[in-house]
Design a protein around this nucleic acid. Structure first.
Lengths: 203, 203
DNA sequence: GTCATCATGTAAGCCGTTACATGATTGC
DNA sequence: GCAATCATGTAACGGCTTACATGATGAC
Protein backbone atom coordinates (compact mmCIF):
# COMPACT_ATOMS: atom_id res chain seq x y z
CA UNK A 1 0.00 0.00 0.00
CA UNK A 2 2.79 2.39 0.89
CA UNK A 3 4.57 1.47 -2.33
CA UNK A 4 1.47 2.26 -4.38
CA UNK A 5 1.08 5.60 -2.65
CA UNK A 6 4.70 6.54 -3.25
CA UNK A 7 4.52 5.54 -6.90
CA UNK A 8 1.37 7.62 -7.16
CA UNK A 9 3.19 10.68 -5.86
CA UNK A 10 6.08 10.10 -8.24
CA UNK A 11 3.68 9.88 -11.21
CA UNK A 12 3.19 13.60 -10.80
CA UNK A 13 6.79 14.68 -10.34
CA UNK A 14 10.04 13.67 -8.64
CA UNK A 15 10.26 13.69 -4.86
CA UNK A 16 12.86 13.07 -2.22
CA UNK A 17 12.07 10.89 0.80
CA UNK A 18 11.66 13.62 3.37
CA UNK A 19 9.16 15.34 1.13
CA UNK A 20 7.20 12.17 0.41
CA UNK A 21 5.98 12.04 3.98
CA UNK A 22 4.26 15.41 3.89
CA UNK A 23 2.64 14.65 0.55
CA UNK A 24 1.36 11.26 1.66
CA UNK A 25 -0.39 13.16 4.41
CA UNK A 26 -1.79 16.16 2.60
CA UNK A 27 -2.26 15.01 -1.01
CA UNK A 28 -3.33 11.39 -0.52
CA UNK A 29 -5.86 10.34 2.08
CA UNK A 30 -3.38 9.10 4.69
CA UNK A 31 -4.40 10.94 7.85
CA UNK A 32 -1.36 11.01 10.12
CA UNK A 33 2.26 11.07 9.11
CA UNK A 34 3.80 7.83 7.98
CA UNK A 35 7.12 7.43 9.79
CA UNK A 36 10.44 7.67 7.98
CA UNK A 37 11.18 4.20 9.29
CA UNK A 38 8.62 3.02 6.74
CA UNK A 39 9.28 5.46 3.93
CA UNK A 40 13.02 5.07 3.41
CA UNK A 41 12.97 1.26 3.36
CA UNK A 42 10.01 1.42 0.95
CA UNK A 43 11.96 3.70 -1.40
CA UNK A 44 14.95 1.36 -1.16
CA UNK A 45 12.73 -1.61 -2.05
CA UNK A 46 11.21 0.23 -4.99
CA UNK A 47 14.69 1.13 -6.22
CA UNK A 48 15.91 -2.48 -5.90
CA UNK A 49 12.87 -3.58 -7.94
CA UNK A 50 13.70 -1.03 -10.62
CA UNK A 51 10.41 0.85 -10.20
CA UNK A 52 12.07 4.09 -9.18
CA UNK A 53 15.56 5.48 -9.55
CA UNK A 54 17.62 8.29 -8.11
CA UNK A 55 17.20 11.25 -10.42
CA UNK A 56 20.06 13.37 -11.60
CA UNK A 57 18.40 16.62 -10.64
CA UNK A 58 18.79 19.77 -12.64
CA UNK A 59 19.95 21.37 -9.40
CA UNK A 60 22.88 18.92 -9.27
CA UNK A 61 23.58 19.46 -12.94
CA UNK A 62 23.63 23.21 -12.52
CA UNK A 63 25.88 23.10 -9.50
CA UNK A 64 28.46 21.10 -11.49
CA UNK A 65 28.33 23.88 -14.09
CA UNK A 66 29.59 26.19 -11.33
CA UNK A 67 27.94 29.58 -11.99
CA UNK A 68 25.77 28.44 -14.89
CA UNK A 69 22.21 29.57 -15.60
CA UNK A 70 20.79 30.60 -12.24
CA UNK A 71 17.30 30.91 -13.65
CA UNK A 72 17.43 27.23 -14.58
CA UNK A 73 18.23 26.26 -11.03
CA UNK A 74 15.45 28.45 -9.68
CA UNK A 75 12.96 26.82 -12.04
CA UNK A 76 13.90 23.35 -10.81
CA UNK A 77 13.45 24.39 -7.21
CA UNK A 78 10.25 26.33 -7.67
CA UNK A 79 8.24 23.13 -7.54
CA UNK A 80 9.68 22.16 -4.14
CA UNK A 81 7.85 23.24 -1.01
CA UNK A 82 10.96 24.30 0.87
CA UNK A 83 12.65 27.64 0.41
CA UNK A 84 15.02 27.79 -2.58
CA UNK A 85 18.49 26.38 -2.09
CA UNK A 86 17.73 24.51 1.12
CA UNK A 87 19.60 21.24 1.65
CA UNK A 88 19.94 20.52 -2.03
CA UNK A 89 23.04 18.36 -1.80
CA UNK A 90 21.98 15.95 0.93
CA UNK A 91 18.77 14.99 -0.86
CA UNK A 92 18.14 11.81 -2.80
CA UNK A 93 15.52 12.73 -5.38
CA UNK A 94 13.63 9.76 -6.80
CA UNK A 95 11.89 9.51 -10.13
CA UNK A 96 9.57 6.78 -11.35
CA UNK A 97 10.81 4.52 -14.16
CA UNK A 98 8.75 3.29 -17.15
CA UNK A 99 8.48 -0.10 -15.41
CA UNK A 100 7.36 1.77 -12.31
CA UNK A 101 4.59 3.44 -14.29
CA UNK A 102 3.44 0.07 -15.58
CA UNK A 103 3.49 -1.46 -12.13
CA UNK A 104 1.62 1.55 -10.72
CA UNK A 105 -1.13 1.27 -13.31
CA UNK A 106 -1.39 -2.44 -12.60
CA UNK A 107 -1.50 -2.06 -8.82
CA UNK A 108 -4.00 0.81 -8.89
CA UNK A 109 -6.45 -1.05 -11.11
CA UNK A 110 -5.98 -4.42 -9.38
CA UNK A 111 -9.26 -5.24 -7.62
CA UNK A 112 -7.51 -7.51 -5.06
CA UNK A 113 -7.06 -6.44 -1.44
CA UNK A 114 -8.78 -3.06 -1.52
CA UNK A 115 -10.92 -3.74 1.49
CA UNK A 116 -10.52 -1.06 4.13
CA UNK A 117 -11.35 2.63 4.03
CA UNK A 118 -7.76 3.87 4.18
CA UNK A 119 -6.77 1.87 1.14
CA UNK A 120 -9.82 2.99 -0.79
CA UNK A 121 -9.30 6.65 0.04
CA UNK A 122 -5.74 6.49 -1.18
CA UNK A 123 -6.80 4.81 -4.44
CA UNK A 124 -9.56 7.36 -4.93
CA UNK A 125 -7.09 10.19 -4.39
CA UNK A 126 -5.13 8.69 -7.28
CA UNK A 127 -8.20 8.03 -9.40
CA UNK A 128 -7.25 10.54 -12.08
CA UNK A 129 -4.79 7.90 -13.30
CA UNK A 130 -7.57 5.33 -13.77
CA UNK A 131 -9.61 4.80 -16.91
CA UNK A 132 -13.22 5.97 -16.40
CA UNK A 133 -14.62 2.44 -16.41
CA UNK A 134 -12.02 1.25 -13.89
CA UNK A 135 -12.96 4.19 -11.71
CA UNK A 136 -16.65 3.25 -11.84
CA UNK A 137 -15.72 -0.35 -11.08
CA UNK A 138 -13.71 0.68 -8.04
CA UNK A 139 -16.56 2.84 -6.79
CA UNK A 140 -19.18 0.16 -7.28
CA UNK A 141 -17.09 -2.43 -5.52
CA UNK A 142 -16.60 -0.07 -2.62
CA UNK A 143 -20.29 0.72 -2.58
CA UNK A 144 -21.30 -2.89 -2.37
CA UNK A 145 -18.87 -3.64 0.44
CA UNK A 146 -20.13 -0.58 2.32
CA UNK A 147 -23.72 -1.74 1.89
CA UNK A 148 -22.81 -5.10 3.36
CA UNK A 149 -21.07 -3.32 6.21
CA UNK A 150 -24.15 -1.14 6.72
CA UNK A 151 -26.35 -4.19 7.12
CA UNK A 152 -24.04 -5.64 9.75
CA UNK A 153 -23.70 -2.35 11.59
CA UNK A 154 -27.48 -1.90 11.72
CA UNK A 155 -27.84 -5.40 13.06
CA UNK A 156 -25.29 -4.77 15.81
CA UNK A 157 -26.93 -1.44 16.67
CA UNK A 158 -30.29 -3.15 17.11
CA UNK A 159 -28.92 -5.59 19.70
CA UNK A 160 -31.10 -4.86 22.73
CA UNK A 161 -28.52 -6.08 25.24
CA UNK A 162 -26.42 -2.99 24.62
CA UNK A 163 -26.23 -0.22 27.18
CA UNK A 164 -26.66 3.44 26.22
CA UNK A 165 -22.97 4.00 25.42
CA UNK A 166 -22.36 0.87 23.41
CA UNK A 167 -25.56 1.50 21.45
CA UNK A 168 -24.50 5.06 20.72
CA UNK A 169 -21.15 3.78 19.40
CA UNK A 170 -22.94 1.33 17.12
CA UNK A 171 -25.40 3.93 15.88
CA UNK A 172 -22.57 6.31 15.15
CA UNK A 173 -20.83 3.57 13.18
CA UNK A 174 -24.00 3.24 11.09
CA UNK A 175 -24.02 6.97 10.42
CA UNK A 176 -20.40 6.85 9.36
CA UNK A 177 -21.08 4.11 6.83
CA UNK A 178 -24.13 5.99 5.56
CA UNK A 179 -21.98 9.07 5.03
CA UNK A 180 -19.46 6.98 3.13
CA UNK A 181 -22.16 5.54 0.87
CA UNK A 182 -23.61 8.99 0.19
CA UNK A 183 -20.13 10.15 -0.81
CA UNK A 184 -19.64 7.20 -3.15
CA UNK A 185 -23.02 7.95 -4.71
CA UNK A 186 -22.10 11.55 -5.51
CA UNK A 187 -18.86 10.33 -7.08
CA UNK A 188 -20.71 7.73 -9.14
CA UNK A 189 -23.22 10.34 -10.28
CA UNK A 190 -20.36 12.58 -11.42
CA UNK A 191 -18.72 9.71 -13.28
CA UNK A 192 -21.93 8.92 -15.10
CA UNK A 193 -22.71 12.47 -16.07
CA UNK A 194 -19.17 12.74 -17.45
CA UNK A 195 -19.66 9.60 -19.50
CA UNK A 196 -22.86 11.01 -20.96
CA UNK A 197 -21.14 14.25 -21.87
CA UNK A 198 -18.28 12.42 -23.56
CA UNK A 199 -20.48 9.93 -25.42
CA UNK A 200 -23.75 11.67 -26.32
CA UNK A 201 -26.59 9.89 -28.12
CA UNK A 202 -25.25 7.50 -30.77
CA UNK A 203 -28.34 7.46 -33.02
CA UNK B 1 -6.00 -2.56 23.41
CA UNK B 2 -7.18 -6.11 22.80
CA UNK B 3 -6.56 -6.91 26.45
CA UNK B 4 -8.67 -3.96 27.56
CA UNK B 5 -11.50 -5.02 25.25
CA UNK B 6 -11.43 -8.60 26.53
CA UNK B 7 -11.38 -7.48 30.15
CA UNK B 8 -14.34 -5.23 29.32
CA UNK B 9 -16.32 -8.16 27.97
CA UNK B 10 -15.48 -10.24 31.03
CA UNK B 11 -16.68 -7.44 33.35
CA UNK B 12 -20.19 -8.31 32.21
CA UNK B 13 -19.99 -12.09 32.42
CA UNK B 14 -17.72 -15.06 31.74
CA UNK B 15 -16.79 -15.89 28.15
CA UNK B 16 -14.83 -18.53 26.32
CA UNK B 17 -12.35 -17.54 23.62
CA UNK B 18 -14.39 -18.52 20.61
CA UNK B 19 -17.25 -16.43 21.88
CA UNK B 20 -15.06 -13.43 22.66
CA UNK B 21 -14.47 -12.84 18.99
CA UNK B 22 -18.13 -12.36 18.10
CA UNK B 23 -18.69 -10.06 21.05
CA UNK B 24 -15.66 -7.90 20.27
CA UNK B 25 -17.29 -7.39 16.91
CA UNK B 26 -20.92 -6.79 17.83
CA UNK B 27 -20.82 -5.38 21.37
CA UNK B 28 -17.68 -3.24 21.24
CA UNK B 29 -16.86 -0.97 18.33
CA UNK B 30 -14.36 -3.29 16.63
CA UNK B 31 -15.63 -3.52 13.07
CA UNK B 32 -14.24 -6.72 11.59
CA UNK B 33 -13.46 -9.94 13.37
CA UNK B 34 -10.27 -10.06 15.37
CA UNK B 35 -8.49 -13.28 14.49
CA UNK B 36 -8.14 -16.16 16.93
CA UNK B 37 -4.43 -15.90 16.43
CA UNK B 38 -4.68 -12.70 18.46
CA UNK B 39 -7.40 -13.67 20.91
CA UNK B 40 -6.05 -16.92 22.34
CA UNK B 41 -2.55 -15.58 23.00
CA UNK B 42 -4.13 -12.48 24.59
CA UNK B 43 -6.21 -14.66 26.91
CA UNK B 44 -3.13 -16.69 27.78
CA UNK B 45 -1.22 -13.48 28.60
CA UNK B 46 -4.07 -12.20 30.77
CA UNK B 47 -4.16 -15.52 32.60
CA UNK B 48 -0.38 -15.48 33.19
CA UNK B 49 -0.73 -11.96 34.61
CA UNK B 50 -3.48 -13.15 36.96
CA UNK B 51 -6.09 -10.80 35.47
CA UNK B 52 -8.37 -13.60 34.33
CA UNK B 53 -8.73 -17.26 35.27
CA UNK B 54 -10.40 -20.33 33.90
CA UNK B 55 -13.79 -20.57 35.51
CA UNK B 56 -15.24 -23.74 36.93
CA UNK B 57 -18.50 -23.45 35.06
CA UNK B 58 -21.81 -24.43 36.55
CA UNK B 59 -22.26 -26.58 33.47
CA UNK B 60 -19.20 -28.60 34.48
CA UNK B 61 -20.37 -28.78 38.06
CA UNK B 62 -23.79 -30.01 37.04
CA UNK B 63 -22.45 -32.63 34.67
CA UNK B 64 -20.38 -34.13 37.52
CA UNK B 65 -23.62 -34.42 39.47
CA UNK B 66 -24.82 -36.78 36.74
CA UNK B 67 -28.59 -36.19 36.35
CA UNK B 68 -28.79 -33.30 38.84
CA UNK B 69 -31.00 -30.25 38.49
CA UNK B 70 -31.55 -29.87 34.79
CA UNK B 71 -33.11 -26.44 35.27
CA UNK B 72 -29.83 -25.28 36.85
CA UNK B 73 -27.87 -26.35 33.81
CA UNK B 74 -30.33 -24.67 31.49
CA UNK B 75 -30.04 -21.46 33.47
CA UNK B 76 -26.26 -21.48 33.16
CA UNK B 77 -26.49 -22.01 29.43
CA UNK B 78 -29.26 -19.55 28.76
CA UNK B 79 -26.78 -16.68 28.74
CA UNK B 80 -24.67 -18.28 26.02
CA UNK B 81 -25.41 -17.47 22.40
CA UNK B 82 -25.13 -21.03 21.14
CA UNK B 83 -27.86 -23.62 21.46
CA UNK B 84 -27.93 -25.41 24.82
CA UNK B 85 -25.52 -28.27 25.30
CA UNK B 86 -23.25 -27.43 22.36
CA UNK B 87 -19.56 -28.20 22.82
CA UNK B 88 -19.65 -27.62 26.55
CA UNK B 89 -16.70 -29.80 27.42
CA UNK B 90 -14.11 -28.47 24.97
CA UNK B 91 -14.56 -24.89 26.10
CA UNK B 92 -12.27 -22.91 28.33
CA UNK B 93 -14.48 -20.36 30.05
CA UNK B 94 -12.61 -17.36 31.45
CA UNK B 95 -13.67 -15.08 34.29
CA UNK B 96 -12.10 -11.83 35.38
CA UNK B 97 -10.29 -11.75 38.74
CA UNK B 98 -10.45 -8.93 41.31
CA UNK B 99 -7.00 -7.83 40.16
CA UNK B 100 -8.32 -7.93 36.59
CA UNK B 101 -11.17 -5.60 37.58
CA UNK B 102 -8.68 -3.18 39.11
CA UNK B 103 -6.45 -3.28 36.08
CA UNK B 104 -9.45 -2.81 33.80
CA UNK B 105 -10.60 0.29 35.68
CA UNK B 106 -7.08 1.64 35.55
CA UNK B 107 -6.59 0.99 31.83
CA UNK B 108 -9.99 2.34 30.86
CA UNK B 109 -9.50 5.63 32.72
CA UNK B 110 -5.84 6.02 31.71
CA UNK B 111 -5.68 9.06 29.40
CA UNK B 112 -2.47 7.79 27.72
CA UNK B 113 -2.47 6.35 24.18
CA UNK B 114 -6.14 6.85 23.33
CA UNK B 115 -5.44 8.56 20.04
CA UNK B 116 -7.23 6.87 17.18
CA UNK B 117 -10.91 6.39 16.48
CA UNK B 118 -10.96 2.63 16.98
CA UNK B 119 -9.49 2.88 20.44
CA UNK B 120 -11.88 5.67 21.40
CA UNK B 121 -14.93 3.81 20.12
CA UNK B 122 -14.00 0.77 22.15
CA UNK B 123 -13.52 2.85 25.28
CA UNK B 124 -16.80 4.63 24.70
CA UNK B 125 -18.57 1.30 24.29
CA UNK B 126 -17.27 0.46 27.77
CA UNK B 127 -18.06 3.90 29.19
CA UNK B 128 -20.73 2.60 31.55
CA UNK B 129 -17.84 1.41 33.74
CA UNK B 130 -16.39 4.93 33.97
CA UNK B 131 -17.23 7.53 36.59
CA UNK B 132 -19.27 10.40 35.06
CA UNK B 133 -16.40 12.90 35.34
CA UNK B 134 -13.94 10.46 33.74
CA UNK B 135 -16.46 9.99 30.93
CA UNK B 136 -16.70 13.73 30.35
CA UNK B 137 -12.91 13.98 30.45
CA UNK B 138 -12.57 11.26 27.84
CA UNK B 139 -15.13 12.96 25.60
CA UNK B 140 -13.54 16.38 25.93
CA UNK B 141 -10.10 15.03 25.16
CA UNK B 142 -11.45 13.30 22.10
CA UNK B 143 -13.28 16.44 21.06
CA UNK B 144 -10.18 18.56 21.22
CA UNK B 145 -8.11 16.09 19.20
CA UNK B 146 -10.90 15.91 16.61
CA UNK B 147 -10.98 19.71 16.39
CA UNK B 148 -7.25 19.76 15.74
CA UNK B 149 -7.73 17.06 13.12
CA UNK B 150 -10.53 19.09 11.56
CA UNK B 151 -8.27 22.10 11.17
CA UNK B 152 -5.62 20.00 9.43
CA UNK B 153 -8.16 18.28 7.21
CA UNK B 154 -9.66 21.60 6.13
CA UNK B 155 -6.23 22.90 5.34
CA UNK B 156 -5.41 19.86 3.20
CA UNK B 157 -8.77 20.12 1.43
CA UNK B 158 -8.09 23.73 0.49
CA UNK B 159 -4.82 22.87 -1.26
CA UNK B 160 -5.45 24.13 -4.79
CA UNK B 161 -2.96 21.73 -6.39
CA UNK B 162 -5.36 18.84 -5.81
CA UNK B 163 -7.27 17.30 -8.70
CA UNK B 164 -11.01 16.62 -8.47
CA UNK B 165 -10.64 13.16 -6.95
CA UNK B 166 -8.00 13.97 -4.35
CA UNK B 167 -9.98 17.05 -3.32
CA UNK B 168 -13.14 14.98 -2.97
CA UNK B 169 -11.27 12.55 -0.71
CA UNK B 170 -10.05 15.41 1.46
CA UNK B 171 -13.48 17.01 1.66
CA UNK B 172 -15.02 13.71 2.62
CA UNK B 173 -12.43 13.35 5.37
CA UNK B 174 -13.53 16.76 6.68
CA UNK B 175 -17.16 15.61 6.68
CA UNK B 176 -16.21 12.48 8.58
CA UNK B 177 -14.47 14.46 11.29
CA UNK B 178 -17.42 16.86 11.49
CA UNK B 179 -19.76 13.93 11.99
CA UNK B 180 -17.52 12.61 14.75
CA UNK B 181 -17.50 15.97 16.51
CA UNK B 182 -21.28 16.26 16.27
CA UNK B 183 -21.55 12.82 17.83
CA UNK B 184 -19.23 13.75 20.69
CA UNK B 185 -21.28 16.88 21.27
CA UNK B 186 -24.52 14.95 21.65
CA UNK B 187 -22.81 12.62 24.10
CA UNK B 188 -21.42 15.55 26.08
CA UNK B 189 -24.85 17.18 26.15
CA UNK B 190 -26.34 13.97 27.53
CA UNK B 191 -23.64 13.72 30.18
CA UNK B 192 -24.27 17.29 31.33
CA UNK B 193 -28.02 16.95 31.47
CA UNK B 194 -27.54 13.81 33.57
CA UNK B 195 -25.25 15.66 35.94
CA UNK B 196 -27.85 18.40 36.34
CA UNK B 197 -30.54 15.83 37.08
CA UNK B 198 -28.39 14.11 39.68
CA UNK B 199 -27.17 17.31 41.33
CA UNK B 200 -29.93 19.92 41.12
CA UNK B 201 -29.50 23.41 42.47
CA UNK B 202 -27.54 23.41 45.72
CA UNK B 203 -28.94 26.64 47.19
C1' DG C 1 29.74 28.54 16.37
C1' DT C 2 25.67 26.76 17.59
C1' DC C 3 20.93 25.61 17.14
C1' DA C 4 16.81 24.30 14.58
C1' DT C 5 15.55 22.04 10.76
C1' DC C 6 16.23 19.22 6.89
C1' DA C 7 17.61 14.74 5.45
C1' DT C 8 18.74 9.73 5.42
C1' DG C 9 19.07 5.58 7.28
C1' DT C 10 19.08 1.08 10.71
C1' DA C 11 17.36 -2.01 14.50
C1' DA C 12 14.16 -3.55 17.66
C1' DG C 13 9.68 -4.21 18.80
C1' DC C 14 4.40 -4.19 18.66
C1' DC C 15 0.31 -5.77 17.29
C1' DG C 16 -2.03 -7.74 14.34
C1' DT C 17 -2.67 -11.25 10.42
C1' DT C 18 -2.64 -15.79 7.72
C1' DA C 19 -1.64 -20.46 7.62
C1' DC C 20 -1.26 -24.50 9.87
C1' DA C 21 -2.44 -28.30 13.16
C1' DT C 22 -5.58 -30.57 16.18
C1' DG C 23 -9.58 -32.30 18.24
C1' DA C 24 -14.70 -32.32 20.27
C1' DT C 25 -19.64 -32.19 19.29
C1' DT C 26 -23.61 -32.65 16.80
C1' DG C 27 -26.81 -33.14 12.84
C1' DC C 28 -27.84 -36.00 9.20
C1' DG D 1 -19.66 -42.57 9.82
C1' DC D 2 -19.07 -38.17 7.94
C1' DA D 3 -19.35 -33.36 7.24
C1' DA D 4 -20.06 -28.87 9.34
C1' DT D 5 -19.23 -26.23 12.99
C1' DC D 6 -17.37 -25.27 17.37
C1' DA D 7 -13.19 -24.75 19.81
C1' DT D 8 -8.23 -24.11 20.95
C1' DG D 9 -3.89 -23.34 19.99
C1' DT D 10 1.13 -22.38 17.49
C1' DA D 11 4.40 -20.39 14.00
C1' DA D 12 5.65 -17.47 10.51
C1' DC D 13 5.17 -13.38 8.62
C1' DG D 14 3.73 -8.26 7.51
C1' DG D 15 3.69 -3.61 7.97
C1' DC D 16 4.11 -0.12 10.68
C1' DT D 17 6.11 2.34 14.85
C1' DT D 18 9.67 4.06 18.07
C1' DA D 19 14.19 4.79 19.19
C1' DC D 20 18.55 5.37 17.79
C1' DA D 21 22.53 7.16 14.95
C1' DT D 22 24.41 10.31 11.67
C1' DG D 23 25.26 14.25 9.06
C1' DA D 24 24.28 18.63 5.96
C1' DT D 25 22.47 23.31 5.68
C1' DG D 26 21.19 27.81 6.87
C1' DA D 27 19.69 31.41 10.25
C1' DC D 28 21.28 34.02 13.85
Amino acid sequence: MLELAILGLLMDRDHHGYEVRAHLRDRLGLGANISFGSIYPALARLEREGLVEVAVTSATKVSTLSTGSLSGERASLRSLRVTPGLNRKSRKVYQITPRGREEFAHLLADPATLNDGKNFSMRMALAKYLAPNARVGLLEQRRSSLCARLGEARQYASNDELDTYARSVMEHAVQGVELDIAWIDTLLATERSNQINLAPEAN
